[in-house]
Computed example of a mutant assay.
Amino acid sequence: MAISLLDTIRVLASFDPPRGSLRGAPWEEYVEWAIAHGLAPLASYNLQYRLPGVDAPDWVRDRLLSVYSGSVNDNVMKLVNFKRCVDELEGRKLLLMGAASFADTLYPHVAFRPVLELQLLLKRMDVDGFAGYLAQHEFRPEPNEPPHGALKVVSDGRTAIFLYADVLGAERRAEVQGIFERSHPMKMYGPSLFRPDLEDAVLLVCLEQAREGYQVPWLSFVDLRELMTGAKAMGGVYSRSVDGAVLLERAKAWKLERALYTSLSIVARLFPETAEALGPALPPLRRATRELLDRLVVQPASEPGKMSHVRGSERLRRLLTGQ
Protein backbone atom coordinates (compact mmCIF):
# COMPACT_ATOMS: atom_id res chain seq x y z
CA MET A 1 0.00 0.00 0.00
CA ALA A 2 1.39 3.38 -1.03
CA ILE A 3 2.33 5.81 1.71
CA SER A 4 0.49 9.11 1.36
CA LEU A 5 2.00 12.57 1.69
CA LEU A 6 0.01 13.14 4.88
CA ASP A 7 1.28 9.88 6.40
CA THR A 8 4.85 10.88 5.57
CA ILE A 9 4.32 14.28 7.15
CA ARG A 10 2.92 12.75 10.34
CA VAL A 11 5.83 10.35 10.77
CA LEU A 12 8.57 12.88 10.13
CA ALA A 13 6.91 15.68 12.17
CA SER A 14 6.80 13.50 15.28
CA PHE A 15 9.16 13.85 18.25
CA ASP A 16 8.76 10.09 18.73
CA PRO A 17 8.32 8.74 15.20
CA PRO A 18 6.99 5.20 14.75
CA ARG A 19 9.49 2.81 13.25
CA GLY A 20 8.75 1.24 9.92
CA SER A 21 9.61 1.54 6.27
CA LEU A 22 8.82 4.67 4.27
CA ARG A 23 9.63 2.92 1.01
CA GLY A 24 7.41 4.34 -1.69
CA ALA A 25 6.74 7.62 0.11
CA PRO A 26 6.15 10.57 -2.25
CA TRP A 27 9.64 12.00 -1.63
CA GLU A 28 9.70 14.46 -4.53
CA GLU A 29 6.54 16.09 -3.27
CA TYR A 30 7.38 15.76 0.41
CA VAL A 31 10.84 17.35 0.40
CA GLU A 32 9.75 20.60 -1.25
CA TRP A 33 6.63 20.70 0.90
CA ALA A 34 8.59 20.16 4.14
CA ILE A 35 11.06 22.90 3.28
CA ALA A 36 8.27 25.37 2.48
CA HIS A 37 6.44 24.57 5.73
CA GLY A 38 9.45 24.73 8.04
CA LEU A 39 9.47 21.03 8.89
CA ALA A 40 12.62 20.02 7.02
CA PRO A 41 15.03 20.33 10.01
CA LEU A 42 12.94 18.06 12.24
CA ALA A 43 12.43 15.61 9.36
CA SER A 44 16.19 15.55 8.72
CA TYR A 45 16.95 14.71 12.35
CA ASN A 46 14.37 11.93 12.36
CA LEU A 47 15.76 10.39 9.18
CA GLN A 48 19.39 10.67 10.31
CA TYR A 49 19.09 9.58 13.93
CA ARG A 50 15.66 8.21 14.80
CA LEU A 51 14.71 6.31 11.64
CA PRO A 52 17.95 5.21 9.97
CA GLY A 53 16.38 2.20 8.26
CA VAL A 54 13.24 3.62 6.65
CA ASP A 55 14.49 3.36 3.06
CA ALA A 56 14.67 7.09 2.36
CA PRO A 57 16.76 7.86 -0.75
CA ASP A 58 20.20 9.38 -0.19
CA TRP A 59 19.25 12.55 -2.06
CA VAL A 60 16.37 13.11 0.40
CA ARG A 61 18.68 12.80 3.39
CA ASP A 62 21.27 15.10 1.81
CA ARG A 63 18.72 17.77 0.83
CA LEU A 64 17.07 17.84 4.25
CA LEU A 65 20.41 17.73 6.07
CA SER A 66 21.55 20.86 4.24
CA VAL A 67 18.39 22.64 5.44
CA TYR A 68 19.00 21.37 8.99
CA SER A 69 22.53 22.77 8.99
CA GLY A 70 21.31 26.08 7.65
CA SER A 71 18.58 26.23 10.30
CA VAL A 72 21.12 25.74 13.10
CA ASN A 73 23.33 28.54 11.86
CA ASP A 74 20.50 30.93 11.04
CA ASN A 75 18.73 30.47 14.38
CA VAL A 76 21.90 30.91 16.40
CA MET A 77 22.87 34.03 14.46
CA LYS A 78 19.45 35.65 14.88
CA LEU A 79 18.97 34.80 18.56
CA VAL A 80 22.51 35.67 19.64
CA ASN A 81 22.35 38.98 17.79
CA PHE A 82 18.97 39.76 19.37
CA LYS A 83 20.32 38.91 22.82
CA ARG A 84 23.19 41.35 22.30
CA CYS A 85 20.69 44.06 21.41
CA VAL A 86 18.37 43.64 24.40
CA ASP A 87 20.53 42.09 27.11
CA GLU A 88 21.12 45.40 28.90
CA LEU A 89 17.70 46.93 28.29
CA GLU A 90 16.05 47.75 31.61
CA GLY A 91 12.77 49.22 32.76
CA ARG A 92 10.58 47.66 30.06
CA LYS A 93 8.40 44.58 29.72
CA LEU A 94 8.55 43.06 26.25
CA LEU A 95 6.96 39.71 25.43
CA LEU A 96 8.69 37.43 22.95
CA MET A 97 6.10 35.40 21.06
CA GLY A 98 6.08 32.75 18.37
CA ALA A 99 9.12 30.96 16.98
CA ALA A 100 11.79 32.55 19.19
CA SER A 101 9.75 31.76 22.30
CA PHE A 102 9.02 28.19 21.21
CA ALA A 103 12.40 27.07 19.87
CA ASP A 104 13.83 26.49 23.35
CA THR A 105 10.63 25.44 25.15
CA LEU A 106 8.80 23.12 22.75
CA TYR A 107 11.53 21.60 20.59
CA PRO A 108 14.30 19.25 21.77
CA HIS A 109 16.84 21.16 19.65
CA VAL A 110 16.79 24.83 18.67
CA ALA A 111 17.47 23.84 15.04
CA PHE A 112 14.13 21.99 14.81
CA ARG A 113 12.13 25.24 14.94
CA PRO A 114 13.27 27.70 12.24
CA VAL A 115 13.04 31.31 13.43
CA LEU A 116 12.12 33.29 10.33
CA GLU A 117 11.40 36.48 12.26
CA LEU A 118 11.05 37.70 15.83
CA GLN A 119 7.65 38.69 17.22
CA LEU A 120 7.36 41.01 20.20
CA LEU A 121 4.28 42.17 22.09
CA LEU A 122 4.66 45.62 23.65
CA LYS A 123 2.47 48.18 25.29
CA ARG A 124 1.44 50.69 22.65
CA MET A 125 3.32 53.53 24.35
CA ASP A 126 6.55 51.51 24.13
CA VAL A 127 6.45 50.66 20.40
CA ASP A 128 8.07 53.81 19.02
CA GLY A 129 10.60 53.96 21.83
CA PHE A 130 11.69 50.37 21.34
CA ALA A 131 11.86 50.83 17.57
CA GLY A 132 14.15 53.80 18.23
CA TYR A 133 16.24 51.68 20.58
CA LEU A 134 16.61 49.00 17.91
CA ALA A 135 17.65 51.68 15.40
CA GLN A 136 20.81 52.10 17.48
CA HIS A 137 21.57 48.48 16.55
CA GLU A 138 21.05 48.99 12.80
CA PHE A 139 17.38 47.92 12.72
CA ARG A 140 15.46 50.14 10.31
CA PRO A 141 11.73 50.31 9.46
CA GLU A 142 10.66 48.04 6.63
CA PRO A 143 8.88 49.84 3.76
CA ASN A 144 6.28 47.11 3.23
CA GLU A 145 2.91 46.99 4.96
CA PRO A 146 3.16 45.11 8.29
CA PRO A 147 1.43 41.71 8.47
CA HIS A 148 -1.98 41.34 10.11
CA GLY A 149 -1.89 42.80 13.61
CA ALA A 150 1.67 44.19 13.64
CA LEU A 151 2.24 47.91 14.15
CA LYS A 152 5.81 48.07 12.90
CA VAL A 153 8.42 45.87 11.25
CA VAL A 154 12.11 46.67 11.58
CA SER A 155 15.06 44.79 10.10
CA ASP A 156 18.84 44.86 10.00
CA GLY A 157 18.83 43.12 6.63
CA ARG A 158 19.13 39.67 8.22
CA THR A 159 16.44 39.54 10.90
CA ALA A 160 12.97 41.07 10.78
CA ILE A 161 11.36 42.04 14.10
CA PHE A 162 7.57 42.41 14.19
CA LEU A 163 6.26 44.74 16.89
CA TYR A 164 2.70 44.19 18.15
CA ALA A 165 0.44 46.06 20.58
CA ASP A 166 -3.26 45.81 21.40
CA VAL A 167 -3.32 42.41 19.67
CA LEU A 168 -6.93 41.86 20.77
CA GLY A 169 -8.15 45.26 19.64
CA ALA A 170 -8.36 48.56 21.44
CA GLU A 171 -11.58 47.55 23.22
CA ARG A 172 -9.85 44.64 24.99
CA ARG A 173 -6.76 46.32 26.39
CA ALA A 174 -7.56 44.96 29.85
CA GLU A 175 -7.21 41.43 28.49
CA VAL A 176 -3.87 42.34 26.88
CA GLN A 177 -2.71 43.76 30.20
CA GLY A 178 -3.48 40.36 31.69
CA ILE A 179 -1.09 38.75 29.20
CA PHE A 180 1.68 40.99 30.50
CA GLU A 181 0.83 40.32 34.13
CA ARG A 182 0.90 36.52 33.70
CA SER A 183 4.09 36.43 31.62
CA HIS A 184 7.30 34.65 32.63
CA PRO A 185 10.81 36.15 32.58
CA MET A 186 13.29 35.10 29.92
CA LYS A 187 16.47 35.74 31.87
CA MET A 188 18.71 34.65 29.01
CA TYR A 189 17.65 37.83 27.17
CA GLY A 190 18.04 40.21 30.08
CA PRO A 191 15.64 41.83 32.58
CA SER A 192 13.13 43.25 30.08
CA LEU A 193 12.21 40.13 28.09
CA PHE A 194 9.30 37.85 29.04
CA ARG A 195 7.21 35.17 27.36
CA PRO A 196 3.42 34.57 27.57
CA ASP A 197 1.91 32.07 29.98
CA LEU A 198 0.86 28.72 28.47
CA GLU A 199 -2.86 29.38 27.95
CA ASP A 200 -2.07 32.83 26.55
CA ALA A 201 0.52 31.33 24.19
CA VAL A 202 -2.07 28.86 22.88
CA LEU A 203 -4.57 31.60 22.13
CA LEU A 204 -1.96 33.89 20.56
CA VAL A 205 -1.04 31.09 18.14
CA CYS A 206 -4.73 30.57 17.31
CA LEU A 207 -5.12 34.32 16.79
CA GLU A 208 -2.19 34.44 14.39
CA GLN A 209 -3.45 31.43 12.43
CA ALA A 210 -6.92 32.94 12.15
CA ARG A 211 -5.59 36.34 11.06
CA GLU A 212 -3.67 34.60 8.28
CA GLY A 213 -6.78 32.75 7.17
CA TYR A 214 -5.08 29.49 8.19
CA GLN A 215 -2.70 29.80 5.26
CA VAL A 216 0.25 29.30 7.56
CA PRO A 217 3.25 26.93 7.55
CA TRP A 218 2.26 23.62 9.11
CA LEU A 219 5.07 24.17 11.61
CA SER A 220 2.58 26.45 13.37
CA PHE A 221 0.31 23.45 13.96
CA VAL A 222 3.26 21.53 15.44
CA ASP A 223 3.77 24.48 17.81
CA LEU A 224 0.14 24.21 18.86
CA ARG A 225 0.35 20.43 19.17
CA GLU A 226 3.21 20.70 21.62
CA LEU A 227 1.64 23.54 23.60
CA MET A 228 -1.59 21.59 24.00
CA THR A 229 0.09 18.30 24.92
CA GLY A 230 2.43 19.71 27.56
CA ALA A 231 5.73 19.89 25.66
CA LYS A 232 6.61 16.41 26.89
CA ALA A 233 9.98 16.41 25.16
CA MET A 234 11.08 19.36 27.29
CA GLY A 235 11.08 20.45 30.93
CA GLY A 236 10.37 24.16 30.76
CA VAL A 237 7.67 26.72 31.32
CA TYR A 238 5.31 25.10 28.78
CA SER A 239 5.84 21.55 30.08
CA ARG A 240 2.57 21.30 31.98
CA SER A 241 -1.01 20.44 31.23
CA VAL A 242 -3.19 23.15 29.76
CA ASP A 243 -5.90 24.30 32.17
CA GLY A 244 -8.92 23.67 29.96
CA ALA A 245 -11.33 25.74 32.03
CA VAL A 246 -8.96 28.72 32.03
CA LEU A 247 -8.34 28.36 28.31
CA LEU A 248 -12.05 28.32 27.49
CA GLU A 249 -12.79 31.23 29.81
CA ARG A 250 -10.00 33.28 28.30
CA ALA A 251 -11.00 32.39 24.74
CA LYS A 252 -14.49 33.69 25.48
CA ALA A 253 -13.16 36.91 26.97
CA TRP A 254 -10.86 37.43 23.98
CA LYS A 255 -13.66 36.52 21.54
CA LEU A 256 -11.47 33.77 20.08
CA GLU A 257 -13.73 30.78 20.66
CA ARG A 258 -14.18 30.17 16.93
CA ALA A 259 -10.45 30.48 16.28
CA LEU A 260 -9.64 28.13 19.16
CA TYR A 261 -12.15 25.57 17.88
CA THR A 262 -10.77 25.80 14.35
CA SER A 263 -7.09 25.59 15.28
CA LEU A 264 -7.54 22.68 17.69
CA SER A 265 -9.73 20.84 15.20
CA ILE A 266 -7.02 21.14 12.55
CA VAL A 267 -4.36 19.84 14.94
CA ALA A 268 -6.59 16.90 15.90
CA ARG A 269 -7.07 16.00 12.22
CA LEU A 270 -3.39 16.35 11.38
CA PHE A 271 -2.20 14.41 14.41
CA PRO A 272 -5.00 11.99 15.42
CA GLU A 273 -3.15 10.87 18.55
CA THR A 274 -3.90 14.31 20.06
CA ALA A 275 -7.67 14.23 19.49
CA GLU A 276 -8.56 12.80 22.88
CA ALA A 277 -6.42 15.33 24.75
CA LEU A 278 -7.72 18.27 22.72
CA GLY A 279 -11.40 17.35 22.94
CA PRO A 280 -12.12 18.96 26.35
CA ALA A 281 -10.59 22.25 25.19
CA LEU A 282 -12.92 22.66 22.20
CA PRO A 283 -15.34 25.55 22.79
CA PRO A 284 -19.04 24.58 22.81
CA LEU A 285 -20.03 26.32 19.58
CA ARG A 286 -23.40 25.94 17.94
CA ARG A 287 -23.64 22.95 15.60
CA ALA A 288 -24.20 25.15 12.56
CA THR A 289 -21.08 27.19 13.38
CA ARG A 290 -18.99 24.05 13.84
CA GLU A 291 -20.17 22.61 10.53
CA LEU A 292 -19.41 25.87 8.73
CA LEU A 293 -15.89 26.09 10.17
CA ASP A 294 -15.24 22.40 9.49
CA ARG A 295 -16.27 22.73 5.86
CA LEU A 296 -14.65 26.07 5.04
CA VAL A 297 -11.45 25.86 7.08
CA VAL A 298 -10.72 22.70 9.05
CA GLN A 299 -11.07 20.17 6.24
CA PRO A 300 -9.13 22.06 3.53
CA ALA A 301 -6.44 23.22 5.98
CA SER A 302 -5.86 19.61 7.05
CA GLU A 303 -4.91 18.43 3.57
CA PRO A 304 -1.52 19.38 2.10
CA GLY A 305 -1.90 21.94 -0.64
CA LYS A 306 -5.69 22.21 -0.37
CA MET A 307 -6.06 25.42 1.67
CA SER A 308 -6.76 28.52 -0.38
CA HIS A 309 -8.58 31.77 0.21
CA VAL A 310 -12.30 31.16 0.04
CA ARG A 311 -14.87 33.66 -1.08
CA GLY A 312 -15.52 36.10 1.73
CA SER A 313 -12.27 35.10 3.45
CA GLU A 314 -11.84 38.57 4.97
CA ARG A 315 -15.29 38.29 6.52
CA LEU A 316 -14.42 34.81 7.77
CA ARG A 317 -11.19 36.14 9.28
CA ARG A 318 -13.12 38.81 11.20
CA LEU A 319 -15.58 36.15 12.36
CA LEU A 320 -12.73 34.00 13.69
CA THR A 321 -10.95 36.84 15.47
CA GLY A 322 -13.99 38.60 16.95
CA GLN A 323 -13.42 41.79 14.99
Rank of each mutant, 00 (worst) to 15 (best):
Q136G: 10
L121E: 07
V153R: 10
V115D: 05
L118A: 01
K123W: 10
A99Y: 02
P146D: 14
R140T: 11
V153I: 09
P147M: 11
D104V: 01
F130D: 05
V154S: 12
V110Q: 12
R140N: 08
R140A: 14
A103D: 07
Q136R: 14
P143C: 06
G98K: 14
S101N: 15
D126N: 11
F130N: 11
N144V: 00
G132F: 03
V115T: 08
H137V: 02
Y107W: 11
V154N: 07
E145P: 12
V154P: 11
Q119A: 06
S155P: 07
T105R: 13
E145D: 11
L151W: 13
F102L: 12
E138M: 08
S101F: 03
P108E: 02
E145I: 06
L106N: 06
V110I: 12
A111V: 00
P146A: 09
R113W: 00
V127F: 08
F139Q: 10
K123E: 13
D128K: 10
G129T: 03
L118H: 03
F112H: 08
A99N: 13
E117M: 01
V110C: 00
H148N: 14
Q136L: 13
A103L: 06
G98E: 14
M125R: 14
L121Q: 05
V153S: 10
P146E: 13
E142D: 11
V127D: 15
R140Q: 07
E117R: 04
R113A: 07
F102C: 07
N144T: 06
Y133I: 00
A150R: 04
H137F: 12
V110K: 02
G98S: 13
